[in-house]
Amino acid sequence: MSIRAPEAARIEIDDVSLRFGGVTALDGVTLELASGSLHALIGPNGAGKTSLLNCISGLYRPSGGSITYSIEGGGERRIDRLPPHRIARLGIARTFQNIELFKHMTTLDNLMLGRHMHMRGGVLDGGLYWGRQQREEVSERRSVEEVIDFLELQAVRGDLVGNLSYGQQKLVELGRALAIEPNFLLLDEPMAGMNVEEKESLARFVLDVYEEWNITPVVIDHDMDVVMEICDRVSVLDFGRVIAVGSPDEVRADPDVIDAYLGEEAHV
């Protein structure tokens, strides 16, 4: 693996609130995400999971509270006022609930875009494509090929991602985030819409990312079952509040969690 080993890091979410007009999407959320666990963030529909993820990655600005990011031996900093590209550069990568790929680019280019922050070339380098630029493109291509091999995307390397199947697109999105070489990998419902087989292989990839690449995944899902099997630390959101944090077994037995999910079923 030429991709560097990630650093141990920690995201501390402290009393974060987020309001949209009259809707309170997040209501005093306090949560800690740290390297060394495979995190899950679950909760019924509309609980605020995506909103929280958007706050972490800088797409939403919390109405109150703070989010702090620290890298072991590297000091800490507030990130809740930083623009998304700065947060990505700190090592927090993500995928989107509704696939947000660059549709008219190939799989390869989507992943190469993930390498953007690790590259230097400017307009003039690109336009002239002289030695230094070519070397950079080639060496980054090598890193990207490792991700392609890992996710078994070789066959669709040169295809426009708009033409790929839903499951393949989900994988390319995962690959694009991995190409960033992040410390944290925030996955917003990575298995939604997949068939059982695809779900299983995706779960396998997430475990490999965690165990072999030492990247810390945070898997969001509203469905408990799959995440419970692979994650070791589960946080549960309901109506914008954290109602439980703990191991899968602890969370499953928590009366508030049972209520929240039963409540959801009652609505359905």
């Binding site: 990655s57 989107f96 549709k103």
Partner: peptide, 14 residues
């Protein structure tokens, strides 16, 4: 091109 296709994702990719 990434900005044209999906500017929010582009910003989240750095």
């Amino acid at each position: 091109v990434a900005i044209r296709d999906q500017d929010i994702a582009a910003s989240a990719m750095g």
